[in-house]
């Protein structure tokens, strides 16, 4: 038994929807007959790609025009959800996805379930799967509410799938005003420089952690990543310490990565980090503490000093 309609909060830019958005559509398609999407512009740039993935209708919300997305989008979405009564609204676990879901939850007085990696329909209600305690257990939670259920999903929980659907119909949402809640304005936008493979899509990721000892040692990570055509990542500890920007953070609060090879250098493997990378196909770890939890998930673990092993490995790889 499947549900009737699920609406998806779509994110993206002129170049199209994000991968996470397409993953959400796939998740929604698996449990509902009809999938619609909320889009933060006039809807034209995504009508084709969202349609291709199975979205029948786009509700275009216009640009947030220099305001933060959450309050603006939730005000527009609330009216439509009340009138069209979808079974659920799905969001990606992004800063704007979380803000919008939270604001919508208050406006509709409906519960939100977060951190989900799976979804099914059991006895006619939505059941969500959430990993807890660093992914050692999974909790399955059923909604017991009347009205639209709200759910946030972690990236890379579903495989996006093009199904050759027709271009989505676009309908423009108007009228709602976020009022006082929408008065924070964006005065500038800074894109941190990134070169080489992107962290969340690279086939190989090399990450560094506190075991590097000092910020300068992160150069070893960058150099090894360059030789392996890999993206470079980091544990939360060295992001918090200001060594590298947040955009490099792998883990519960950072990016979820599932590369063919994950190479952890000087990372102990706190729960926070493991959640973001234990889905990698192969894991190599170098750490001087033989008791470090990272070794419990490593396919090849080197108990040793990153300052000795990494330079030697870099020399060896350069020579071949």
């Amino acid at each position: 038994m499947s549900l009737n309609t699920i609406m998806v909060f779509a994110e993206g830019d002129e170049s199209g929807p994000t991968t996470l958005t397409l993953e959400l559509i796939r998740a929604a398609r698996g449990v509902a007959a009809n999938v619609e999407a909320f889009v933060l512009d006039d809807g034209s740039s995504m009508a084709e790609s969202l349609g291709d993935h199975g979205v029948s209708k786009i509700h275009a919300m216009g640009g947030a025009e220099g305001k933060l997305v959450g309050a603006h989008a939730a005000a527009l979405m609330a009216d439509l959800v009340v009138s069209n009564l979808p079974d659920a609204v799905f969001f990606g676990q992004t800063p704007d996805g979380r803000d919008t879901a939270a604001r919508l939850s208050v406006r509709l007085d409906q519960p939100v379930i977060t951190n989900n990696v799976g979804v099914t329909v059991e006895d006619g209600v939505l059941v969500l799967e959430e990993p807890v305690f660093g992914g050692t257990q999974n909790i399955f939670t059923a909604f017991r509410n009347d009205g639209a259920s709200l759910a946030l999903f972690r990236p890379k929980s579903f495989e996006a799938e093009s199904i050759g659907g027709a271009i989505a119909e676009v309908s423009v949402l108007e009228g709602a005003d976020p009022g006082n809640s929408g008065t924070a304005i964006v005065t500038g936008r800074v894109i941190e420089e990134r070169s080489g493979p992107q962290l969340d899509s690279a086939a190989v990721v090399v990450s560094g952690g506190r075991g590097l000892g000092q910020p300068e040692a992160y150069e070893l990570v960058d150099e090894l990543a360059g030789l392996l055509n890999a993206a470079s990542g980091a544990s939360r500890a060295i992001v918090d310490a200001g060594w590298v920007p947040y955009s490099k953070q792998v883990g519960q609060t950072g990016k979820v990565v599932k590369p063919s090879l994950y190479f952890a250098c000087g990372i102990s493997g706190a729960t926070q980090h493991l959640v973001g990378m234990k889905g990698s196909k192969v894991i190599i770890a170098i750490n001087k503490d033989p008791e470090a939890p990272i070794f419990s998930v490593a396919d090849l673990g080197i108990v040793g000093d990153v300052h000795k092993v990494m330079p030697a490995l870099i020399e060896t790889l350069k020579a071949t």
């Binding site: 190599i284 396919d299 090849l300 673990g301 080197i302 108990v303 040793g304 092993v309």
Partner: peptide
């Protein structure tokens, strides 16, 4: 977990 080895100076060769 897989193969865990202690670095005795040539662990980099095993990684390569």
């Amino acid at each position: 977990s897989g193969e865990i080895i202690e670095d005795d100076g040539d662990a980099h060769q095993r990684i390569a």
